[in-house]
Design a protein around this nucleic acid. Structure first.
Lengths: 199, 199
DNA sequence: GGTTACATGTAACTAGTTACATGATTAG
DNA sequence: CTAATCATGTAACTAGTTACATGTAACC
């Protein structure tokens, strides 16, 4: 799961672990400050050849990589470092990109995984993307059916309220997915030139 | 987490592992057929003195425990067994009930935990229950605030759609929780006799 | 006579969290 | 000078899944 998130973020651009973690936090509300998961994951991805890393000495940090614009008066030297340690900047490999495409298509039964798949589904070809959405839809529909044929037995008001919320959430989610699917299909019909020659 | 679910279900009545698993499935849409988590959990709960178990021989299975009403013609003997193996029926201990009360109050930051806490919150005294709801509410509000002060950076339509859904879900959840809280408070005001003497 | 349901368990694996260790740089 | 932020990592723990092993009994 983390693999998917990391490869997806690295496909957008090279990053080091600390920065990756910040992006993960804003991408998935959750994925705490768990460097305890991230760093081992990066090491694993590198062992498998899906990413490669470059050590970047703090002196070599360039202006582009350093936060905002206003250059604040150089103190002592023009090259100042924002970090005290050598950073390891990771980049995705070709094998990594292939693997990412696989991860983007598998399952979709898992709520958290689907979240990540959606966040990076722009890297999929349109037909694969649509297939992913349909797969997720089928899963939601089967959950819906399960809930309907086996309604709440409990008379407890709290349990009932919980199950009602679940029901509403499923319906809301299905409607949302249907909108996504409809948008995909309308895209195929209108600007359906995968190799645009005449703009 | 499983501990909470198991203790809660056992507080409603004695059960064996297989039956517990079925209840878990209908209670939490999820918690797969994971006997691989349940049986070790039961063993652990027993070691800690929160539950105790009784071996029940298949011959001793009584009619009350055997599914539905229609008695189907006894074949060969009046005591027929539905199961081929000795079942281990678990019951919650006094220490287990105390522990359950603790589990019902801790955290509430965790979505899945809160689900279970709500499913069994009827075992809490009303003030504790209200406190639990308020705690969950505070957590949702802080998530809401985080999302607002740090909006989506991405221009990707899929990412945007995802974050919009998140937002709607949070709002829906908050409204739902507020209804639960309001109901609790109105209960306190109307039938607020914890030791009813005059019915 | 094969599939499904009943029933208990173990082993290996997946996935993430919490706490710790370490140290530099920067903003107030 | 002190708190926050930057930066990388390890160890122990929590929590659940998947696959396997084993066997009975009921259903069609």
């Amino acid at each position: 799961m983390l693999d998917l998130a990391v490869l997806g973020l690295l496909k957008e651009g090279d990053l080091h672990g600390y920065e990756l973690n910040k992006r993960l936090k804003s991408l998935v509300g959750g994925y705490a400050n768990s460097y305890g998961a991230l760093y081992p994951a990066l090491a694993r991805l590198e062992r498998r050849g899906w990413v490669s890393s470059t050590a970047v000495a703090p002196e070599l940090v360039t202006d582009e990589q350093t936060s905002e614009g206003h250059p604040r008066r150089n103190r002592k030297r023009s090259t100042r470092s924002k970090s005290g340690r050598t950073r390891k900047v990771y980049q995705i490999t070709e094998a990594g990109e292939d693997h990412l495409l696989e991860l983007l298509q598998e399952d979709a039964n898992n709520e958290r995984r689907f979240r990540l798949q959606l966040a990076f589904c722009r890297f999929l070809p349109p037909d694969r993307r649509l297939a992913l959405f349909e797969l997720r839809r089928a899963h939601l529909v089967s959950l819906q059916a399960m809930a309907r044929r086996d309604p709440v037995h409990s008379n407890d008001p709290y349990v009932r309220s919980l199950f009602e919320r679940d029901q509403e959430r499923r319906e809301h989610d299905l409607a949302w997915l249907d909108r996504l699917i409809a948008d995909e299909q309308s895209k195929r019909q209108s600007g359906a030139n995968p190799d645009p020659i005449d703009p």
